[in-house]
């Protein structure tokens, strides 16, 4: 890992990986959509609305994955003072916020026909809403300082503090009785859903994950460009 603390090496790595992330993402999403909308059957209980699952569940996974990545990168940045890690965390935040928003919005669109309401204040929904606020707080704090590195470090501490929310989200459906159904894929005794539904779900999840890396790589490269622009401007005003 320390090898890639060097920005040049890291940039080279992500520039090489970016086409792969893009390819995997586009292929998996195309195949996933085909299976999700055409091949997979309707659920006997939830009928056609089960198709919302294929965009809702991957978005929720990614909401938590991105937060974990952001908090992990923040911890690496604080402990080893790797500036590259802060850049990864900063690039991850808006993507994670987008996934969290999608998880809430598609969940709402699924809740209306299934539960008869757009929103309930149960533990799962509330904790995901808090996650969205944590992302927004992270981005606000990160951009609120004239000194960029001060903002990066302050936001990193916030990301780590907010990480207590991630296990709460994960286990909220087991700890409290809620309308939200418990996990049916990630279980110790194997997934509880049929393979005809598991295939599109996993394809979409892989597509979303690759999409995250794709966009994150693009954002990291833009961040590095910005840093260089700032350095050049500084040099030119001094010259």
């Amino acid at each position: 890992m320390h090898r890639f603390a060097n920005p040049t090496r890291f940039l080279k790595l992500i520039s090489a990986l970016q086409p792969w992330a893009m390819g995997v993402s586009v292929l998996c999403l195309a195949a996933g959509l085909y299976f999700a909308l055409i091949v997979s059957p309707a659920d006997y209980q939830q009928s056609e609305t089960v198709r919302i699952m294929y965009v809702h569940v991957p978005a929720s996974w990614m909401a938590m994955f991105c937060y974990s990545a952001m908090a992990g990168a923040s911890a690496v940045g604080l402990i080893w003072r790797h500036l590259t890690a802060f850049v990864v965390a900063r690039a991850t935040a808006p993507i994670g916020a987008a996934f969290t928003f999608l998880a809430l919005a598609t969940g709402s669109l699924w809740g209306k026909p299934m539960w008869g309401t757009w929103w309930v204040w149960d533990a799962r929904l509330t904790s995901v809403l808090i996650l969205l606020f944590l992302y927004l707080g992270y981005m606000a704090l990160e951009g609120a300082f004239d000194d960029r590195s001060r903002g990066a470090r302050a936001a990193a501490i916030l990301a780590i503090v907010g990480a207590v929310n991630v296990p709460i989200i994960k286990f909220s459906v087991d700890w409290w009785n809620t309308l939200h159904q418990p996990a049916s894929v990630v279980k110790i005794d194997g997934p509880a859903i049929h393979s005809s539904m598991l295939t599109p779900l996993l394809l979409m999840a892989m597509g979303y994950t690759a999409f995250y890396f794709w966009v994150m790589f693009v954002r990291v490269r833009a961040e590095f460009n910005d840093a260089r622009i700032q350095a050049l401007r500084l040099r030119q005003t001094e010259a």
């Binding site: 707080g137 606000a140 704090l141 609120a144 903002g151 302050a154 916030l158």
Partner: peptide
């Protein structure tokens, strides 16, 4: 402590 020295730290603090 996190929002010390930030722009508009009052509003930011409430958001955090």
């Amino acid at each position: 402590a996190l929002s010390l020295g930030a722009r508009r730290s009052g509003v930011l603090l409430s958001l955090l």
